[in-house]
Nucleic acid binder design. Structure first.
Length: 850
RNA sequence: GCCGGCGUGGCGAAAUGGCAGACGCAACGGACUUAAAAUCCGUUGGGAGGAAACUCCCGUGCGGGUUCAAGUCCCGCCGCCGGCACCA
């Protein structure tokens, strides 16, 4: 293909238009207060998930969503919106740092190089980004505000009375550090001594490091945490108002994991109370033993002398397991009896207390009552260790084994005969009356471990003095990374920043925080900076925020459309919502939610139907596609493949298909002379379209417009193909029809639309400005339908004949026409007609017998 | 295990409960050409019958159901993909 002659000169005019757009600032979007800003226009903020600029460059998966948003951005401009359509770089992160360690190049150098490469590639596709708003999470100007936002979080607390984040100054307790939204805690992490670094859970396989296979141990380390759990309820309820795919909302709901239940106090013999959390207080009478997490603080105190050795050994063996190992539910349960007994508050029963690692220390109270008859895990544990099983819920219909559903309480004293829901209410009230329990809500969501022992990330704007931390003054932001030559892991638990001794020394008595922020930090708020990227006074100006995010009075707040992959369904999208909520509470943002509408694009597979990967060798490079077929064909194919949200394989033949389509568009207007030069075709004439052409044109206006509103790009393109096929068949082409077609095509294939517009404008009037600057056309309903429509005549739902009738024929007229149809009425002969169903404009169905 | 999503020609896919397969790819036939490529025109779900115009039957993962009418709605399975995975 590469050596083959091009079907239309895309390689000449595509770069030309890209250059013109860049030079004229065609897609610069003014802000409120800027010259050229029109406050009368509605706003449309359409955003892509900005990429991590890896060394591998762009692959065809990136531009899928980017093309969709670009088409919508262009379409909205033509419909009179002020469109915010920006792009930037999520440039901190592990791969850059690891590559830097390997090659000895500073990550700032490799990152800058990769950003350049990505930007060149994106610009070749003809995206209408406002590049004057480009942001880079690693630039000092950006880091400054990331750190500033961290300080907002650090300097606030969650007031349960108002259910909001408030400045820490409104906290009246004695220890503000204990309630800050950013706090320090000892947390167990995966520490790999051999690699000298902490690893994420995903980087640990079977208790060994994924890289190198070295042993990994869990060790408590001092970590920065963000108190996202305080917002669990609001993060959950806020989902209801968002136009997101239900599947994504469900993922977040499951991640937040709200459950309704009760705390219940059990009393060990001669000890403090042990509080458990349960979602099934109605099964309290079936509790036959208790289990504490091995790390539970009471374990040591209640363990009997003769069980002490066994318990200590068990606790030790559990401690050496990785989180992942420990949470492997498929494994057989393990545990040890503590030798202690506790009293069940509802019936005074004396039940044994065990420890087992199937009880997690971080959820609920780290202790449970075990009801083996009605909980799968307790059931398995009881069977293994021979503990008693008492049924207290009668299933609606008999079931084998363990029954975990709702039923009728039995063997449960005061609860007998009640439904599960009634029993829960009654026993919870009973517990509360006696002061031995209370209703409670729990969440699976954990606080966000926010620090990393890495070099390539935002430094914390925090210093330590005399064992306590404090914020550095805002005026000192940004805290820049020290320019280390050696940013390798230290080999100890010290982060690499510890090597920058001068930097670490903040004053004679104070030293800087050595951890850096995780990669999520920068991406938590980039959509805000895009609104006002050069503001030196604030992270986002108030006017810019009010305009681009909305003033909070309308439902659609924040980003109007956010397109990206499902892989960010939970973490990025939850973290962003959390930060946004805090900033909103503190009065910095007008809206409570960042992304009103979210759409996930599907993954593009290789031509072999497999996930694209370097190792499979099936990665498609956009540059090569554009070399051979041009940017317009590339864009069009990305959208023509199938529904945006669907997973679909790449096909070079498919690219050729849309390429041929664009060549047909080209030849509608252009003709190649003897010397191989393209001239405006003589077939284009200032004549009125035929009625058929007019009908197809208006059907195309309607279909493309409707399909853009539902993001059905593939069917919009199909309709334009139908339109082009219709116009190609005509010997003389009405210029008005071409004009409309080019306007409709211009968001999809902007270069060719603009080029043809220019050519036509040299001969015909009505081609001023450019295709992209035209108002979006409106279809005329009266032109859509012929006066006659073809309907089908059915017998018992099967099509027998077809018939052309006036489009507004009534049911009675349809039935009469059907009966008058010779061949069709022959089918009816000798049969009894039971019923006739007539649908105007569609069909007549005779239900017959015999 | 639990929770989602998806199963339609040789392939990518269309189809407010109303003619299944629009549009594109591939394939085949024709026109143009010395020839090929490109282009243009046409055929193309499967099967049976007919010389032919044409006629009939089957068909949206499988099995049931609702309906005059089901790819679409309901019930029960199977397969693939994704997420969560001892959260009491």
């Amino acid at each position: 293909m590469a050596s083959q002659r091009k079907q239309y000169p895309f390689s000449d005019f595509e770069p030309k238009w890209q250059q013109r757009w860049a030079e004229s600032g065609a897609y610069r979007t003014p802000n409120p207060g800027d010259e050229g800003f029109d406050p009368g226009k509605p706003k449309y903020y359409v955003l892509d998930m900005f990429p991590y600029p890896s060394g591998a460059g762009l692959h065809v998966g990136h531009p899928e969503g980017y093309t969709a948003t670009d088409i919508l951005a262009r379409h909205h401009r033509m419909r009179g919106f002020n469109v915010l359509h920006p792009m930037g770089w999520d440039a901190f992160g592990l791969p850059a740092e690891q590559y830097a360690v390997k090659t000895g190049q500073h990550p700032a150098v490799t990152t800058a190089h990769n950003v350049g490469q990505f930007k060149t590639q994106l610009q070749r596709i003809g995206f209408s980004y406002d590049w004057s708003r480009e942001v880079n999470t690693t630039s000092p100007d950006y880091v400054r505000w990331t750190q500033w936002i961290f300080l907002q979080i650090y300097n606030s607390w969650f007031n349960p009375a108002t259910n909001r984040a408030e400045p820490i100054s409104t906290y009246t307790g004695s220890d503000p550090d204990s309630v800050r939204l950013a706090y320090v805690a000892e947390m167990p992490v995966n520490w790999c001594p051999e690699l000298g670094t902490v690893l994420a859970n995903e980087e640990v396989v079977d208790g060994k490091s994924e890289v190198g296979g070295f042993p990994v141990e869990r060790r408590p380390m001092r970590q920065w945490m963000l108190r996202i759990t305080a917002f669990a309820e609001r993060l959950l309820s806020g989902l209801d108002g968002l136009d997101w795919p239900e599947s994504i909302k469900l993922l977040q709901r499951n991640w937040i994991g709200r459950s309704n239940g009760a705390f219940v106090d059990f009393t060990p013999e001669g000890g403090d109370k042990i509080t458990v959390y349960t979602t099934r207080p109605d099964t309290l009478f079936g509790a036959t033993y208790m289990v504490l997490a091995p790390e539970h603080p009471l374990v040591a105190r209640i363990t009997s002398a003769d069980q002490r050795t066994a318990v200590e050994e068990y606790v030790k063996s559990v401690a050496s397991k990785s989180e992942r190992d420990r949470q492997d539910a498929s494994k057989e349960k393990t545990g040890v009896f503590t030798g202690a007994f506790a009293i069940n508050p509802v019936n005074g029963e004396r039940i044994p207390v065990w420890i087992a690692d199937y009880v997690l220390t971080g959820y609920g109270t780290g202790a449970i009552m075990a009801v083996p008859a009605h909980d799968d895990r307790d059931h398995a544990f009881a069977l293994k260790f021979g503990l008693p099983i008492i049924q207290v819920v009668q299933p609606p219909s008999p079931v084998e084994g363990c029954f975990t559903g709702d039923g009728i309480a039995v063997n449960s004293g005061i609860l007998d005969g009640l439904s599960t829901a009634e029993a829960k209410d009654k026993i919870t009230a009973w517990l509360e009356e006696r002061g031995v329990g209370r209703g409670a809500v729990q969440f699976k969501l954990r606080d966000w471990l926010f620090s990393r022992q890495r070099y390539w990330g935002e430094p914390f704007p925090i210093v330590w003095e005399n064992g306590s931390h404090r914020a550095i003054p805002e005026g000192e932001l940004p805290v820049r990374l020290p320019d280390l030559d050696d940013f390798k892991p230290t080999g100890t638990a010290e982060p690499p920043l510890s090597k920058a001794e001068d930097w670490v020394r903040y004053s004679d008595t104070a030293r800087r925080e050595l951890n850096t922020m995780p990669q999520w930090a920068g991406s938590c708020w980039y959509y805000l900076r895009f609104c006002d990227p050069n503001n030196a006074e604030r992270f986002i100006g108030r006017d810019a925020a009010a305009y681009w995010l909305g003033d909070g009075s309308q439902k659609s707040g924040g980003v109007d459309l956010y397109v990206g992959g499902t892989e960010h369904a939970v973490l990025h999208l939850l973290y962003s919502r959390f930060w946004h909520m805090v900033l909103h509470d503190l009065g910095h943002l007008p809206t409570p939610e960042p992304f009103q509408r979210l759409v996930n694009q599907g993954i593009i597979l290789g031509t072999d139907g497999q996930k694209m990967s370097k190792s499979r060798g099936n990665v498609v490079n956009p540059d090569e596609v554009i070399d051979d077929y041009g940017a317009d064909a590339f864009r069009l194919y990305e959208m023509f493949m199938g529904p945006l949200e669907q997973m679909k394989p790449w096909s070079m033949k498919g690219v050729e298909g849309v390429y041929r389509f664009l060549a047909r568009v080209w030849r509608l207007a252009m003709h190649e002379d003897q010397e191989g030069r393209w001239q405006l075709s003589d077939a284009v004439a200032d004549i009125p379209p035929t009625p058929t052409q007019l009908r197809v044109l208006h059907a195309t206006i309607k279909k493309v417009t409707d399909d853009l509103s539902t993001l059905s790009f593939n069917t919009a393109i199909s309709q334009m193909m139908i339109c082009v096929n219709e116009l190609t068949a005509a010997e003389r082409r009405p210029v008005a029809g071409l004009r409309t077609l080019l306007i409709l095509l211009s968001p999809f294939a902007p270069h060719i639309a603009e080029e043809l517009w220019e050519h036509l404008g040299r001969k015909f009037p009505g081609f001023e400005k450019g295709a992209h600057a035209q108002p979006w056309p409106v279809h005329d309903d009266s032109l859509l339908m012929d006066n006659e429509v073809e309907i089908v005549l059915q017998i018992n739902g099967k099509v027998r004949e077809k018939l052309t009738v006036p489009k507004d024929a009534s049911c009675e007229q349809l039935e009469a026409a059907a009966r008058a149809h010779d061949k069709f009425s022959a089918h009816l002969a000798g049969k009894e007609t039971i019923k006739v169903v007539a649908v105007p404009g569609k069909l007549v169905n005779f239900v017959v017998k015999g």
